[in-house]
Computed example of a mutant assay.
Amino acid sequence: MCDKTFVTNAELKSPIRTHTGENPFDCDICDSRFSNKRNANNHMRIHTREKPHSCEVCGKTFVQKSNAIMHMRRTHTDIKHPCKIWAKAFATNFAVKSQMRTHTEDKFVSCKVCGKAFSHQINVTTHMRTHTGERPHSCEVCGKTFTQKTHAIVHMQRIHTGEKPYSCKVCGKEFATNDAVKLHMRTHTGDKPFSCEVCGKAFAIKNNVTKHMRTHTGDKPFSCEVCGKAFASKSNVTKHMRTHTGEKPYSCEVCGKAFALKNNATTHMRTHTGEKPFSCEICGKAFTQKTDATVHMRIHTGNKPYFCKVCGKAFTQKTDATVHMRTHTGEKPYFCKVCGKAFTKQTASMVHMRTHTGEKPYSCKVCGKAFAQQIHVTRHMQTHTAEK
């Protein structure tokens, strides 16, 4: 099953169950099941609220002994082990050595499947689960499984207990883990310790560097189970799936309109509030979305970063370059559901639909005459200005 070794046969039994899925220990109260007795005992403390392990200094109590030990090291121990490169200290010498490898890039072990190298064996073990699909750590309450134990612990705190014992010293925001506080602090300090080896762009979170690198490599390791479309991140697959399921989990609190993406719901709310938080640094024009402000800036700079691979024509927006490419390929991906006519742009398809529905959403402010397109209103207005 795996190459992990154990000293005694008794020690082997529990890990074997992560492969077989056997859970012989059950909770008498909620019927949750576990692969070993220790996890069952820890789970019972959720019901009894027992916290038998306490800090010798401040008396704070914990469900597990390991949590009490870690609390002691982080909070009360004066002995700190400094990193020679960063101005940062750690509770244990092992933690310093682990951190140093992120600077020296010493990677002693590699994945037998894809060859990716790591500084620690435990990182290889965790990485292997991306190939095997193994999720050996489960939530003691709902049974949800995870690839890493820390993820299961954080899940427990956020979803079931609601406990957020760590808070930001600057703004007071509370978090379930100390690591989350450290990441949050970078929003105050502006610290971005991780950078792209190709273009030098800096990031506050290491995982974001990995995702960013895919913009250079073109790697898209995640795919849709329905249509097979590939994506650079798992979160994008989740969002894309909603185009198939029709799920729209985010809704406007004012008008009730539903959205597939949280960001779209936030942007939509600005149509009610009138908020335009993003402004042009040159002319001061305000926008509801940051992307609109970025695109607008190109009017001033003349920057056209997107090029047609066929004729070399440059564009300020990626979508314009994509639509232009269809003049070369002849692709018309948007179809009228009534007559089947095909279009290169979705907007053209929507305008065409009005020939079937009779909808005329644009009207003249002078005489009230209605039109299917805004450009027709503009042309019509000239008949009024000519009269004067």
Rank of each mutant, 00 (worst) to 15 (best):
H131P: 14
T177V: 10
K182Y: 09
K149C: 10
E174W: 07
P136W: 07
G133N: 05
E140H: 08
T161D: 07
V141I: 15
E174D: 13
T189A: 05
C142P: 14
E163Q: 12
A180Y: 12
H188A: 04
M128R: 00
H160L: 13
E140A: 11
F175A: 02
K182G: 08
H188G: 03
V154Q: 12
K149A: 06
P193R: 00
V181E: 07
P136D: 00
S138P: 02
M185S: 10
G162A: 10
R158V: 15
G133E: 00
E174R: 15
G190C: 06
A180P: 05
T130H: 07
I159H: 01
I153M: 09
S138H: 15
E174Q: 15
N178D: 04
T147W: 00
S167V: 01
Y166R: 08
T187M: 14
N178S: 14
G133V: 04
T130L: 10
K149P: 03
A180N: 15
M185T: 06
H155L: 12
G190W: 10
F146I: 09
H131I: 06
H151C: 07
H160I: 13
P165L: 09
G172R: 08
H188T: 09
T130Q: 01
P193E: 00
T145N: 09
T145L: 01
F175Q: 01
V154G: 00
R186C: 11
H151K: 01
T161P: 11
T150F: 06
E163W: 05
N178V: 07
L183Q: 13
L183P: 01
Q148K: 06
G162F: 11
T145D: 06
L183K: 09
N178R: 04
Q157L: 15
G162E: 10
E174C: 14
A180R: 10
Q148C: 08
E134C: 06
V154C: 09
K169E: 15
T132G: 04
E163L: 03
K169I: 13
T147P: 02
P193Q: 01
K173T: 14
M185K: 01
H151W: 08
Q148A: 14
C168S: 12
H155P: 14
E163Y: 08
A180F: 11
G162P: 13
K182N: 14
T130S: 05
Q157N: 15
T147S: 15
H188I: 12
F146Y: 14
K173P: 11
E140D: 15
F146Q: 08
K169L: 02
E134T: 02
V181L: 01
T147N: 03
E174S: 15
Y166P: 12
E134W: 01
H184K: 06
G162I: 09
M185G: 01
D179V: 03
C139N: 04
T132D: 03
I153G: 00
C139K: 08
V181C: 09
T150L: 04
V170H: 07
R186S: 11
H137D: 13
N178P: 05
N178F: 12
Q148R: 09
C139M: 06
K173Q: 11
T161L: 11
H188P: 10
T132P: 12
T145Q: 08
E163T: 13
S167N: 13
T161W: 04
T150A: 12
C142S: 12
R129M: 10
F146G: 04
A176K: 02
R135E: 04
T187Q: 06
G162H: 09
K144Y: 08
